[in-house]
């Protein structure tokens, strides 16, 4: 399995993702600059966190017009597993690959700290094999992670089982339904605000983030 880690101007989490995939799990992974227009050689895509285009206008709003996004949309349509983390999630929302939108945190504060996150859905390439109800200890770090979708949209998400992660315990940012992550209707595109790539070694406080990448490996092994 070969994973592309997309890098936009202002992306910051690409090295952490690359480290997890190559050093922790021994997978093949490549940093791909946002001007790339052909992603067909990759089996999975990750859009890491950071602040693409300085978060100007709205987080993710400018990155959605980067040259690479045409092939991201093609990959999404063809069922390729795609994970957006933090700002990567915001880009997938802005691009319309995932439903909903982000608002600034209800507190108006940038919040950075550990957070309990409940896995709600296991039928995605990034949660395969994690029992629903499992609590993961993952760091969050964002100023605009307040997930919004209108009532009809929320009912649709629930009916279609597109909520993948919820914040457990306190809701750190005011997200509707304490939603921390969602997927598209097909389930192959997943976005979440917490950072699994920053929680892969006990030395750094938690290795629960490993489960997200193990899920992708399980998914890939099962598909072969």
């Amino acid at each position: 399995m070969k994973v592309a880690i997309l890098v936009f101007p202002g992306t910051g989490g690409e090295q952490d993702c690359h480290y997890v995939l190559t050093e922790v799990f021994g997978l093949e992974a490549e940093l791909v600059w946002h001007t790339e227009t052909d992603l067909r050689r990759f089996d999975a895509l990750i859009l890491p966190g950071g602040a693409s285009y300085g978060d100007y206008l709205r987080p993710g709003a400018l990155a959605k017009f980067s040259p690479v996004m045409g092939s991201v949309i093609k990959a999404a349509d063809s069922g390729t597993p795609i994970l957006g983390i933090g700002n990567g999630f915001q880009i997938l929302l802005e691009a319309g690959l995932l439903p909903g939108a982000m608002l600034v945190n209800e507190s108006l504060l940038f919040y950075c700290g550990p957070q309990k996150v409940e896995v709600v859905k296991d039928r995605t390439p990034f949660t395969r094999g994690i029992a629903p109800g499992t609590l993961l200890d993952l760091p969050i770090a964002h100023g605009a992670g307040n997930y919004f979708i209108d009532e009809a949209g929320l009912a649709h998400l629930e009916a279609n089982e597109q909520i993948v992660f919820r914040y457990a315990g306190s809701n750190p940012n005011g997200s509707v339904g304490a939603i921390a992550g969602v997927c598209n209707a097909a389930g192959n595109v997943v976005g979440l605000m917490p950072h699994p790539e920053r929680a892969v070694e006990a030395l750094l406080g938690s290795e629960d983030g490993q489960q997200i990448f193990k899920a992708l490996i399980n998914y890939w092994e099962a598909k072969k």
Binding site: L103, V104, E106, L108, N146, F148, G174
Partner: peptide, 13 residues
């Protein structure tokens, strides 16, 4: 502008 009904924390502050 934010749509009516969308929480506007800046405006509240």
């Amino acid at each position: 502008t934010l749509k009516p009904g969308v929480l506007d924390p800046q405006a509240k502050a």
